[in-house]
Simulated scan of single mutants.
Amino acid sequence: MGLLEGKVAVVTGASTGIGRAIMSTFCREGARVVAASRTASRLEEAAEKVRADGGTVHTVAADLSEDDEVGRVIDAAVAEFGALDVLVNNAGVGYAYRAVRPGSMLPLDESSLDDWNHVMGINLGSVVYACRRAIPIMKEQGGGSIVNVASVLGLRGHPDAHAYTTAKGAIVNLTRSLATTYARFGIRTNTICPGYIDTPMVAEYVPFLNSEEQRFVWNPMGRTGEPREIADGALYLGSSMGSYCNGAELVIDGGMIAKSG
Rank of each mutant, 00 (worst) to 15 (best):
Ala203Arg: 15
Ala150His: 07
Ile18Gly: 05
Ile74Ser: 04
Arg20Trp: 05
Cys131Tyr: 08
Asn246Phe: 04
Ile230Phe: 08
Ala14Val: 10
Ala76Lys: 13
Ile135Arg: 02
Val60Trp: 04
Gly19Phe: 05
Ala79Tyr: 00
Asp109Thr: 09
Leu87Gly: 12
Leu124Ala: 10
Trp218Glu: 04
Glu249Asn: 13
Phe208Gly: 07
Glu229Val: 09
Glu44Thr: 13
Asp67Gln: 15
Asp63His: 15
Ala161Met: 09
Ala47Cys: 09
Met120Trp: 02
Gly254Ile: 05
Ala248Arg: 05
Leu250Ser: 14
Thr16Pro: 00
Ala91Lys: 07
Arg184Lys: 08
Arg133Asn: 02
Ala35Val: 06
Val149Ser: 06
Val217Leu: 14
Gly82Ala: 04
Glu44Tyr: 03
Arg156Cys: 01
Ser37Met: 07
Leu174Asn: 07
Ser24Arg: 15
Pro220Ile: 03
Phe185Gly: 01
Gly19Gln: 09
Val128Trp: 15
Asn210Phe: 02
Glu249Met: 05
Leu237Tyr: 10
Arg176Val: 09
Ala248Pro: 00
Arg72Ser: 06
Val152Ile: 14
Ala234Pro: 02
Ala258Pro: 00
Gly186Glu: 03
Arg28Cys: 05
Pro102Ile: 08
Trp116Cys: 05
Ile122Asp: 03
Met120Arg: 10
Arg20Met: 01
Tyr129Arg: 01
Thr25Ser: 14
Ile197Leu: 09
Arg215Trp: 10
